[in-house]
Amino acid sequence: MDIWIRFNNILRKVLFIIFFTDIFSRNRGNRVGLIIYAGLLVLVIINDYLRYKHLYKSSRTVFYVSIIVSIGLGSVLTFFVGGNITIYLFMILVDIAFLKDVKALKYLYTINALAIIFVPLFRFAWLDGISILQVILESPRDFLMMVILVLFSSASVFSYRALLIEKNRVEKLNKEIEKLTISKERNRVAQEIHDNIGHNLIALNMNLDVLFNMVDKEDKLNEIIVKCQRLTKDSVENLRRAVYALKDESIFENFSRSLEELRQNIADNSNIQIEYDIDPKIEDFSPEYKNILYTTIKESITNSIKHGKANKVNIDIEVGDRIQMRIKDNGIGCEEIVKGNGLVGIEERISRVNGQIRFITEKNKGFRTEIILPI
């Protein structure tokens, strides 16, 4: 598609140069006509440029009016100048063929096709001083060839349009199939981890509990067992988070909705108040970024409740030339930050995408996390 667009743009520029050359060669002794027709062609170029670059983002009505203006100006130039400028009406045919509104497409195509066929006939009739019917009767073969040329050109353009539509439909289906396949594989991997490694860790922790009750409480072996128990519990918790992240695909689809669900779930199980201001542009970013932000928010809220004893958390995400996220609670804070698995995990995720992170806290002044991710 990109190659087609580039080729189309180059071809248009070449044709406009030919049109200008045609106008100059046909109006060498007619300075007024030369200025008028060259000016009309400039208006054609400006109108086309605005339609391609700006009006396609505007209302459909404005876009359609621009096409009608092109047909009108092209018809005037074809009638008074003739020659190669007739090709311009065929160029408009390409624009009309790719309209999504079928009703507008039919009307505009009919107007353009009639202009292609009959404007040259009116020109010949005007130059020869005869009626258009006489032109058709004197050259029925030429008239028939023009009609066939329009039909053939239309068939070619609309066939290409149908091919592109089908190509886009197939690509969309392929993406949906790929998405479904990835989803099923993610769930399978998550279930596999949960069923095998998760159960083994839980069984290991149970055996450590039994061993802990069997040994002397003053024995050094007891300290090793306690450390093993702590590591096992941390591993189970990390495993649970990994499984949750694998299965939770909703954050990739709608970040704000997932954050609202997280807030409601936490509100049902604690007294903490969570407020957030999320830039909607965040929805345009990759699943990796959304996952990093979501996991960081979840981990920060957990720390605010567990360690900070906070009852309020504020979350702000801004999108500009970079993504900035600030998470602040009103907890007890601390004099010195001791980074556990949670904070270390946040730092590792941020560093993987070349981001920056700062943890800011003072005793009795809450805890603040500031993150910057490059775009």
Rank of each mutant, 00 (worst) to 15 (best):
residue 4 W to F: 09
residue 6 R to P: 00
residue 11 L to R: 11
residue 15 L to D: 06
residue 18 I to M: 04
residue 19 F to C: 08
residue 19 F to M: 05
residue 20 F to H: 01
residue 20 F to D: 02
residue 31 R to P: 07
residue 31 R to G: 02
residue 32 V to P: 03
residue 36 I to M: 13
residue 41 L to S: 03
residue 41 L to W: 09
residue 42 V to N: 08
residue 46 I to D: 14
residue 55 L to P: 09
residue 60 R to N: 11
residue 61 T to P: 00
residue 61 T to H: 01
residue 67 I to V: 03
residue 67 I to F: 02
residue 70 S to Q: 14
residue 74 G to N: 09
residue 74 G to F: 10
residue 76 V to K: 05
residue 77 L to F: 06
residue 78 T to L: 13
residue 80 F to R: 01
residue 83 G to L: 07
residue 84 N to R: 06
residue 85 I to C: 09
residue 85 I to N: 11
residue 90 F to C: 05
residue 92 I to M: 00
residue 97 A to I: 01
residue 99 L to E: 01
residue 102 V to N: 02
residue 103 K to P: 00
residue 104 A to Q: 02
residue 105 L to T: 12
residue 109 Y to E: 00
residue 117 I to K: 01
residue 119 V to H: 06
residue 121 L to E: 14
residue 126 W to L: 12
residue 135 V to Q: 13
residue 142 D to A: 11
residue 142 D to E: 12
residue 144 L to V: 11
residue 145 M to S: 15
residue 146 M to N: 13
residue 149 L to I: 11
residue 150 V to L: 08
residue 155 A to T: 12
residue 158 F to V: 14
residue 160 Y to C: 13
residue 163 L to C: 04
residue 165 I to R: 13
residue 166 E to M: 10
residue 172 K to A: 15
residue 173 L to H: 10
residue 177 I to E: 04
residue 180 L to T: 02
residue 184 K to A: 05
residue 187 N to P: 02
residue 188 R to L: 14
residue 188 R to T: 12
residue 194 H to C: 02
residue 201 L to R: 03
residue 206 M to T: 07
residue 211 L to T: 11
residue 212 F to V: 12
residue 218 E to H: 12
residue 218 E to W: 08
residue 220 K to P: 13
residue 221 L to C: 01
residue 225 I to S: 01
residue 244 Y to Q: 09
residue 244 Y to M: 04
residue 249 E to C: 00
residue 250 S to C: 00
residue 251 I to T: 15
residue 251 I to E: 14
residue 252 F to E: 15
residue 252 F to P: 03
residue 253 E to K: 11
residue 256 S to G: 11
residue 257 R to Y: 08
residue 261 E to I: 06
residue 262 L to S: 14
residue 268 D to C: 08
residue 270 S to Y: 12
residue 270 S to I: 07
residue 283 E to A: 07
residue 283 E to K: 03
residue 289 Y to R: 05
residue 298 K to F: 04
residue 300 S to E: 10
residue 307 H to D: 11
residue 307 H to M: 08
residue 308 G to K: 01
residue 311 N to I: 07
residue 312 K to C: 06
residue 314 N to I: 06
residue 321 D to K: 04
residue 322 R to S: 11
residue 327 I to A: 10
residue 343 L to N: 14
residue 346 I to D: 11
residue 346 I to N: 09
residue 346 I to P: 07
residue 347 E to M: 00
residue 349 R to Q: 04
residue 352 R to H: 00
residue 352 R to K: 02
residue 357 I to K: 03
residue 357 I to A: 06
residue 359 F to G: 03
residue 362 E to T: 14
residue 363 K to P: 05
residue 365 K to T: 10
residue 369 T to E: 04
residue 375 I to A: 05
